[in-house]
Amino acid sequence: MNFALILFCLLILSGAIWVADIFFLRKHRPADAKDPWWVEYGASFFPVILLVFVLRSFIVEPFKIPSASMLPTLHVGDFILVNKYTYGIRLPVINKKIIAINEPQRGDVMVFRYPEDPSLDYIKRVIGIPGDKVAYQNKRLSINGKLLETTRLDDYLHPERLYYSKQFIEKIDGIEHSMLNDADAPSFISNVAQFPHRNNCLYNDAGVICTVPEGHYFMMGDNRDNSRDGRFWGFVPEENIVGKAFFIWLNFSNLKRIGSFQ
């Protein structure tokens, strides 16, 4: 469901009713006549819809975490806020950038439209920016030939499935975040899609090595062996960017999660 398109249509409809009532309909109604129900509701909802549309399109957008691919950073059921303007001002619905501000940086947690189905929003961590050579070999990540620094932590107990994963602190461009690996999961990547710029990636028994094309980004989940990400479906084009995730504002099953975003 394209909520942005639905909201835009409601804005146009309620706005048209509001304008028609002010400049035409009201003048032709008797002074003591009650507004028709459709005028009353349409005109009264217009300011509310306009406010929601502006906030959601240009300032912040709420997003619910649907899967465990970003554990331990983000949990299933986390409600997060996404900054819509930090990567540039975009026209609603068509998502075309009209004002450039910042570009995504390595380590950012970014929401984007899934390349294989743009009607779906995905969230992953930015690993590679245009021109980077990203290698994920034997479950170790390197960028432009430099192996990322990692520090081993205590094993992570998954809250839903009750099993342990190896947990590490990984540092990328000075940004530290936790990430998980499963000891029994293979290093090689199977069921790889035939995505655009597929020839920029080399797959082997140890994993994958990709050179990120211009205007694209390479994304990975923090739960490395339980994330279907850029290793499987390729690169995220710039026009698919939605915004930067920055805050957990609610989790019904764990209120301590509020504000805990790393």
Score class of each variant (00 low, 15 high):
V60P: 00
V60C: 01
F63H: 02
F63L: 06
F63R: 01
F63V: 00
K64A: 15
P66F: 05
P66N: 04
P66H: 05
S67H: 03
A68C: 08
L71C: 11
T73S: 07
H75T: 15
G77F: 13
G77V: 15
D78I: 13
I80D: 02
L81R: 05
V82G: 01
V82T: 05
V82E: 00
N83K: 01
K84C: 03
K84T: 01
Y85F: 15
Y85K: 00
Y85G: 00
T86A: 12
T86S: 14
T86R: 06
Y87M: 02
G88S: 03
I89F: 08
R90C: 02
R90Y: 04
L91I: 07
V93L: 08
I94N: 12
I94R: 08
N95A: 09
N95S: 15
K96I: 06
K96Q: 06
K97G: 00
I98K: 02
I98W: 03
I98C: 03
I99N: 01
A100G: 15
A100T: 13
I101G: 11
I101M: 15
N102E: 15
E103K: 13
P104R: 04
Q105L: 10
Q105C: 04
G107I: 00
D108V: 00
M110C: 12
F112E: 14
P115G: 14
D117I: 12
P118Y: 12
P118M: 14
P118D: 13
L120S: 14
L120F: 09
Y122Q: 03
K124T: 12
R125E: 05
V126M: 05
V126C: 10
I127A: 13
G128C: 09
I129V: 08
I129N: 03
I129Q: 04
G131K: 14
D132E: 09
K133V: 10
V134C: 11
V134W: 05
Y136K: 03
Y136I: 08
Q137P: 00
N138S: 12
N138P: 02
N138K: 11
K139L: 07
R140T: 07
R140F: 14
R140Y: 07
R140H: 13
L141G: 07
L141Y: 07
N144Y: 11
N144L: 13
G145H: 14
K146P: 04
L147E: 12
L147K: 11
L148V: 08
T150H: 05
T150G: 02
